[in-house]
């Protein structure tokens, strides 16, 4: 049995700071954590990095953390801007923590860019904490509104680097363990070597393995993994 679940469903169910492997990103993770805990520091943070470096994980962990403290938090997935509306940004300055993901998705959409610009101003005026994530530095997002670019560059801008092999291995094993799955190191290494070093893809593989191992009542061994994912 192999069901491939779309990303974002069932995968990041437990995105928290505890199950995030920082690797070379300790400073960025610490800044996000501080913001989530309302522990001072820069109120507006911009995180950027390629796919699979953990931006979404961190934003969701931050929302989770804020809620656990009894604060209202909002996660705005701009990758789905098509089914949302800039109107959903109204009043967000009343919320304790606002996390905006995939800002690149609304580049060159004037209504969204303007709405984000105005939201930024309101957040700043009210001192609301905000973490924004995108796949490039502010100047490289392809935004048309220079006012928005300069504001993104104004806050604390932090780059997230991809994990090295050791980090990937640790992240994969940790994720497996959290699902109650024992993934021996050689299996993790096999996946890294033969399949992918891309985090989201690895997690999708893990998901398939999880289902398959459950269905077949088998442990994760290299032969079994080969059977399932080829």
């Amino acid at each position: 049995m192999s069901i491939q679940l779309p990303l974002g469903i069932g995968l990041r169910d437990d995105a928290s700071f505890d199950n995030f492997i920082s690797g070379a990103n300790a400073e960025a993770v610490s800044a996000v954590q501080r913001s989530a805990r309302n522990g001072g520091g820069d109120p507006i943070i911009y995180l950027w990095g390629g796919d699979g470096v953990g931006k979404t994980h961190l934003l969701q962990a931050a929302c989770h953390q804020a809620s656990a403290q009894g604060e209202a938090a909002a996660y705005i997935p701009l990758a789905q801007a098509g089914e949302l509306s800039p109107a959903m940004l109204e009043g967000l300055e009343q919320i304790a923590l606002v996390c905006i993901d995939d800002i690149q998705a609304i580049a060159a959409q004037p209504a969204w860019e303007a709405a984000l610009f105005h939201l930024y101003n309101r957040l700043r005026d009210s001192g609301t904490r905000c973490i924004i994530a995108g796949n490039a530095a502010p100047a490289g997002l392809g935004l048309r509104l220079p006012d928005l670019v300069s504001r993104l560059a104004w806050g604390l801008v932090l780059h997230l680097a991809a994990l090295d092999d050791e980090g990937l291995l640790a992240a994969l094993q940790l994720r497996a363990r959290n699902r109650g799955l024992d993934m021996p190191e050689e299996v993790a290494q096999f996946l890294l070597r033969r399949h992918s070093r891309d985090m989201p893809l690895l997690f999708t593989l893990l998901d398939r393995l999880d289902h398959a191992s459950l269905a077949a009542q088998r442990r994760l061994t290299i032969p079994f993994v080969k059977d399932v994912v080829g």
Binding site: G8, I9, G10, R12, D13, A15, Q60, C63, H64, A66, S67, A72, A73, A74, Y75, I76, P77, L92, I95, C99
Partner: peptide, 14 residues
């Protein structure tokens, strides 16, 4: 709900 749905629509509610 998916974590994303939960974070987007439920957590902002007071």
């Amino acid at each position: 709900l998916t974590p994303q749905q939960f974070n987007t629509w439920i957590r902002p509610l007071h």
